[in-house]
């Protein structure tokens, strides 16, 4: 089977001249749970955003599911993004809207602007949204306002929203960085379950190595925009850890 993502010599430079990604090449196979690690500012988030093309690579080639998506725009770009669900550190829900509506917004890419802006979501879509809320175990909160939920619950709504896209790939940009340890595991377990049960490929940024060892099938480490490590979670030794995070770093456990 061909790789789901194939990045060749990918670089990204911000308008202010900061080079966030430098000549990055890697592939992601279907069904993988790839974790990207590295210090803040090492280019992890930028990498995520180039994959679903919220950012356009400055140079290099990005192939997704067999087609070159490096510089697509317009409808092609929208279709590309529809195939990729994304969740964020700060959940990014619409705070004042209900959990159900927030979930439905995952389907916006499939709807015409007029249809969706009038607020008409078909019964089928609502049914699907409720099913997805069921998967992340918060169906009973469907009518509550999003900001009345706890952080972990909000992140689960965000996962349900991403599931509305029936994604081939799920991008998770530091999904547990603003959650407490217990909640972190619950969110990671839902991602793991989606990966194993639905076969959805997951690319996830993480900070805690204990989580990496538990959930990742493969690890990429970024340092100053370059890949400095690629391999199995078990291969990250003390020495690699110092290499990735600097000599002063010590590992913090999260149980």
């Amino acid at each position: 089977m061909p790789p789901l993502i194939s990045a060749e010599h990918l670089s990204f430079e911000y308008p202010n001249g900061f080079k966030a990604l430098k000549n990055v090449s890697f592939t992601v196979e279907p069904g993988e749970f790839l974790v990207v690690i590295g210090l803040s500012g090492s280019g992890k988030s930028t990498l995520m955003r180039t994959i679903n093309r919220l950012l356009e690579p400055t140079s290099g080639t990005l192939t997704f599911h067999g087609s070159d998506v490096t510089h697509i725009e317009g409808d092609a770009l929208r279709r590309h993004r529809q195939k990729i669900g994304m969740i964020f550190q700060h959940f990014n829900l619409i705070k004042r809207h209900s959990v159900l509506r927030n979930t439905l917004y995952g389907a916006l890419g499939q709807l015409s602007s007029m249809q969706s802006m009038l607020g008409h979501f078909s019964p089928d879509l609502c049914e699907k949204a409720l099913r997805n809320l069921d998967i992340v175990g918060i169906r009973e909160k469907a009518d509550q306002r999003a900001d009345s939920l706890s952080g972990g619950q909000q992140q689960r709504v965000a996962i349900a929203r991403a599931l509305m896209q029936d994604p081939m790939l799920l991008l998770a940009d530091e999904p547990v960085a603003s959650l407490d340890p217990a909640t972190s595991h619950s969110v990671m377990k839902y991602l793991d379950r989606i990966n194993k049960e639905f076969g959805t490929t997951v690319v996830c940024n993480l900070h805690f190595l204990s989580l990496v060892r538990q959930y990742a099938t493969r690890v990429i480490a970024l340092k100053a925009g370059e890949i400095v490590f690629e391999g199995q979670p078990s291969e990250i030794t003390e020495q690699w850890f110092k290499e990735i995070y600097g000599d002063d770093a010590t590992e913090v456990e999260i149980r």
Partner: peptide
Amino acid sequence: GPMEAISATGAS
């Protein structure tokens, strides 16, 4: 953040 999240769904 929410703008980014909605963009990421492929919304116009």
